[in-house]
């Protein structure tokens, strides 16, 4: 890495505005969904007083559905931007379909497990990160599908009835199973949150690259030579 320190460092835009907006909307909505979802599935209280005067769980459910719509919107925004955004956000670059990506994934995994082994820093998401985020996006999609299937079964308009029937058919006409899968997604995101927060801090400390401020400003300090397409192949 000695020659790297001699190369020119530039402050460049990596994450465009829609990516950052989608990221923080997803963060806010997933946290809201997690907390309210946990309370809906397992309300740890019994409110005193007359039912006609209180609407505690009703309000929690309202927040859950609202956050669900926010998550849907931010997911659609992210989905769209994966087709029109810069090269760091494209689905085409995120899919691990090339050999060098898998070589890189192995190299990154090795350096995570054996910290003595160093591996390269990457301007956007490194291939291992891309793989994890693809999995998370699939998780988001799965939560949206199961969540809106459950939501559809509370609405009795023709639109929601049709949607609910499709969703139910997808899961073998087992609404209780949909509930279970949706519930398990809460824990999927809880695990992701722990790993994600840790790896962000880890990356900042170990590779000395910016992470948290990059998701706010969108900018990152990058070695100039890394911008060359050849740099993608170690």
């Amino acid at each position: 890495m000695a020659e790297r320190s001699e190369s020119r460092i530039i402050y460049m835009k990596v994450w465009q505005a829609p990516i950052r907006i989608a990221h923080w909307l997803m963060f806010a909505s997933v946290v809201t969904l997690g907390i309210t979802g946990y309370l809906i599935g397992n309300p740890p209280f019994s409110a005193p007083g007359e039912a006609s005067r209180i609407y505690t769980l009703g309000t929690i459910r309202f927040l859950h559905f609202l956050a669900g719509y926010v998550l849907l919107a931010s997911f659609l925004l992210r989905l769209y931007w994966g087709f029109v955004g810069n090269r760091f956000s494209r689905w085409a670059t995120m899919l691990p379909v090339r050999k060098w990506q898998w070589r890189w994934i192995w190299g990154e995994t090795r350096s995570l497990l054996w910290p003595r082994i160093r591996y390269y820093a990457y301007t956007g998401h490194a291939p291992l990160g891309n793989l994890v985020y693809l999995l998370v996006y699939l998780g988001v999609l799965f939560s949206i599908v199961t969540g809106f299937t459950l939501y559809a079964h509370q609405q009795y308009t023709p639109f929601w009835r049709t949607l609910g029937a499709w969703g139910l058919a997808l899961f073998g006409y087992n609404l209780n199973f949909v509930h279970l899968l949706h519930r398990l997604m809460l824990w999927f995101f809880a695990i992701f949150l722990v790993v994600h927060l840790y790896l962000v801090v880890y990356t900042v400390v170990v590779t000395r690259t910016t992470q948290i401020d990059t998701m706010i400003s969108g900018k990152k300090f990058v070695f100039e030579e890394e911008l060359a397409p050849e740099a993608e192949k170690p």
Partner: peptide
């Protein structure tokens, strides 16, 4: 659904 026609539903919405 039973849940949407249930006479105990107000208690669900209230969180009781």
């Amino acid at each position: 659904r039973i849940h949407d026609t249930c006479e105990r539903r107000p208690h669900f919405d209230a969180g009781q």
